Computed example of a mutant assay.
Amino acid sequence: MTTAFYPGSFDPMTNGHLDILVQALNVASRVVVAIGIHPGKVPMFSFEERADLIRLSLGEVLPDRLADIEVVSFDNLLVDAAREHGTSLVIRGLRNGTDLDYEMQMAGLNQKLAPMLQTVFLPAIPESQPITATLVRQIASMGGDVSAFVPKVVRDALRRKLGR
């Protein structure tokens, strides 16, 4: 049984995140979705809200695989958090060459820190390549329609959060 570690901020969960999570479930039998908590950043959604949105989003597309994910938080090194959760793979989504350059650097550093942890790169589908959680938050906060970029449950949560 292979367990993968899929880290990110997921603030909020986007269609791109969901696509990579679905792909990760094709690679691993179990996925630990790890929400990074950064003391210097104030997220739009709390950890609990993000965890719920991840589960609800996956439930819309793969309800039979909900039991195969665990949502956790981490505030330490990715490699240490991955080891703490007994994972052997780190999942990283790639949207473009810029992502690849950055992720290759991180994978190399992680390999030095934790040689037994393998990084797996998964390509984003074309529709989700321009999507970032930062852009989604900006568009939503300015009253724009983010329906094409996020699962329906996330769109609704954004509307509630922003009073729209």
Results as ranks from 00 to 15, higher is better:
residue 72 V to K: 07
residue 34 A to G: 08
residue 83 R to Y: 11
residue 111 Q to K: 15
residue 102 Y to S: 12
residue 66 L to H: 06
residue 72 V to H: 00
residue 99 D to N: 09
residue 67 A to R: 14
residue 32 V to L: 11
residue 55 R to Q: 12
residue 113 L to G: 04
residue 121 F to C: 04
residue 130 P to T: 11
residue 107 A to E: 00
residue 62 L to N: 12
residue 88 S to E: 10
residue 45 F to D: 00
residue 129 Q to V: 08
residue 124 A to I: 11
residue 126 P to S: 06
residue 99 D to L: 02
residue 133 A to L: 03
residue 64 D to W: 15
residue 45 F to I: 04
residue 51 A to T: 01
residue 93 G to H: 01
residue 83 R to C: 07
residue 74 F to Y: 08
residue 55 R to S: 05
residue 32 V to D: 02
residue 40 G to C: 13
residue 109 L to T: 14
residue 67 A to P: 14
residue 116 M to W: 05
residue 107 A to Y: 02
residue 113 L to A: 05
residue 104 M to L: 14
residue 58 L to S: 03
residue 94 L to E: 05
residue 46 S to Y: 09
residue 120 V to G: 02
residue 79 V to T: 06
residue 78 L to R: 12
residue 84 E to S: 13
residue 41 K to I: 14
residue 31 V to L: 00
residue 88 S to I: 15
residue 56 L to S: 13
residue 67 A to F: 03
residue 126 P to H: 07
residue 65 R to W: 14
residue 101 D to R: 13
residue 126 P to E: 04
residue 41 K to R: 12
residue 67 A to Q: 12
residue 72 V to M: 11
residue 89 L to M: 10
residue 46 S to T: 06
residue 105 Q to G: 14
residue 30 R to H: 15
residue 42 V to R: 12
residue 110 N to G: 06
residue 130 P to F: 04
residue 101 D to I: 12
residue 102 Y to M: 07
residue 113 L to E: 06
residue 113 L to W: 04
residue 44 M to A: 05
residue 48 E to Q: 10
residue 35 I to F: 09
